[in-house]
Design a binder for these strands. Sequence first.
DNA 1: CGCTAATGTCATCACGCGATGTCATCACTT
DNA 2: AAGTGATGACATCGCGTGATGACATTAGCG
Lengths: 206, 206
Amino acid sequence: MTPSSTGLGRDVRRGRPKDAAATKEALLAAAQHLFGQRGYEATTTREIGERAGVDPALIARYFGSKALLYIAAVVAEARGDEPTPDLESVADVARALVRRTDRHGVGPVTQALIRSDTAQEIRSAAQAHLTRRLVQPMVEDLSRRGVDQPRLRAEVVVAALMGITLGRANGWFDELSAVGEGPLVELVAALLDQGGHGVGRTPGLP
Amino acid sequence: MTPSSTGLGRDVRRGRPKDAAATKEALLAAAQHLFGQRGYEATTTREIGERAGVDPALIARYFGSKALLYIAAVVAEARGDEPTPDLESVADVARALVRRTDRHGVGPVTQALIRSDTAQEIRSAAQAHLTRRLVQPMVEDLSRRGVDQPRLRAEVVVAALMGITLGRANGWFDELSAVGEGPLVELVAALLDQGGHGVGRTPGLP
DNA sequence: CGCTAATGTCATCACGCGATGTCATCACTT
DNA sequence: AAGTGATGACATCGCGTGATGACATTAGCG
């Protein structure tokens, strides 16, 4: 989140008119929210313009097209992702994911991944982001702890976490959506982080 | 899957013309496949008609509308879901989910759940289906085994499984998509089914 | 064989989308 | 204060969508 977007928040833009930078930020903030909430196809440029208090035609002027605005939103989300906290243990990742989803919704990156109609370029970017940001650190952590098949394990865990946050945000189940962040993270970490409990190895190994 | 739809498979409909029942089935089969693959919004009635070898206008005749056809597809999927195998243990659910996704794609029910633009009626039906079919049996299994917070646990596990199958089907990560069904199910079961390993209780309990 | 209702085909509608271009309006420099 | 380029508002375009209704064709029955 940029400082100015924090300032104007969710509503129609006020302040002095004819400020190109502010307009661009307002559009980006609105795009982040709407794309993250409903995904690419389900969000219209008119909605984005309305939420930003700005004419939708300005999307073309400042970002080129709706697709490029989406990419800008993904990039902005990747940057604003908390100042790179040390996401290593499963609990860390789980907490970060749940917290961010609870606050800002699913987010453009996740939306890009779950939708099959996402443009290939956007999808690749989102996958790379997810891998570099979440999977890779976990792989290193698992390797360090001597768990075998660390990469596959990390991928499975991250995918599982995606499903959990997705289900929570979308209200699939009653208790999953109702439970607090703390208990949920605790439960999920206990479930998925078995290295700490000595059960992380394949059956048959010492 | 109905017997006749199995017979004609993926392609254009042949056989004797002017058969309303066959036309209806062809449309339903095509709808199940396309809706399950791409979701509701991303699938057009023209595509469904083309895949079924039938005029798209017949969707309106036989199902009323695209939305009603989608509901019919969800209902059909719910019915055709293997003749109610005993889905109790986590491993059972994982195996069934992975297997069905590997064969038929994500499926209309899951698509309805992950898309935020799904009509409320469809979403409720999909949630109810998921709860009755997967969560409820697992709750009973966990309760029987004395695990506490059985409902929340079951919901978390099912959501995690959704994420895993979703990530596998959508190619989020290399190894997750490449690994065979057997090893994946084994790993996932070992990860999520902790009741069998004595780690299923909340920390602090005997 | 001929009639009729069921079935399939086709042209077309209204709508919402993203995008574009034109023109009015404002801010900044001198 | 005036001029000028940047900025925003508006009307409109072309496209693809789901849906509709008129028309052609077939199957089933007497």
